[in-house]
């Protein structure tokens, strides 16, 4: 092996050469638990995910990682770089107390329905030119649906 590398060291193919005759053996053992898109098997660990609605919410909770750097969703938690989003679905834009919104958002007149949220999260600056939410957009529409489902599930009590 050393010899091989030595001969063609800086040439980019040396790894191939060093990798042996068949670089493409298939699996020795292949356990297919589930096909993509198929509902997960209801096991103890996966129980929560077996309900499609809660599966979507769970997915949304995971996808909220895009947002959590700036937004809290726990009731009473302080605003971060963005306002606390607890109970945001159905609320008027710019309504969280103590948060310094941009003039653009305050003047938007939007009510945060699922559809409004969807277009906002897809491209905040296009939806509300001048908004100070400069990051966190989600391009994938399925992922946005999941985040919105998650936001819907968090209501103020």
């Amino acid at each position: 092996m050393l010899k091989l590398i030595h001969v063609i060291a800086l040439s980019p193919l040396f790894v191939l050469a060093a990798c042996g005759a068949d670089p493409a053996p298939g699996p020795v053992e292949q356990i297919i638990v589930r096909e993509p898109g198929a509902a997960p098997v209801a096991t103890a660990a996966a129980a929560v995910a077996s309900n499609p609605a809660s599966a979507l919410i769970a997915e949304g909770k995971a996808a909220f990682a895009n947002c959590s750097a700036c937004h809290a969703v726990e009731q009473g938690a302080p605003n971060g770089a963005g306002p606390n989003l607890v109970g945001i679905v159905g609320k008027a834009a710019g309504g969280v107390a103590g948060f310094a919104y941009s003039d653009a958002l305050k003047a938007s007149g939007i009510t945060w329905t699922a559809a409004e949220l969807d277009s906002f999260i897809a491209d905040p600056a296009a939806k509300i030119p001048g908004t100070t939410m400069v990051a966190g957009a989600i391009a994938d529409s399925a992922e946005r649906q999941a985040v919105i489902a998650y936001l819907e599930s968090i209501t103020a009590n």
Binding site: P25, G26, P27, V28, E29, Q30, I31, I32, V33, R34, E35, P36, P40, V41, T43, A44, A45, A46, A49
Partner: peptide
């Protein structure tokens, strides 16, 4: 090389689609 795998727990874990022993 990988001679054997015990994936009893892994196959019940959330999100898992496939478990592959590729030999190496």
């Amino acid at each position: 090389t990988v001679t054997s795998i015990d994936a009893t727990t892994a196959r019940t874990m959330p999100g898992v689609l496939q478990i592959l022993n590729m030999g190496d």
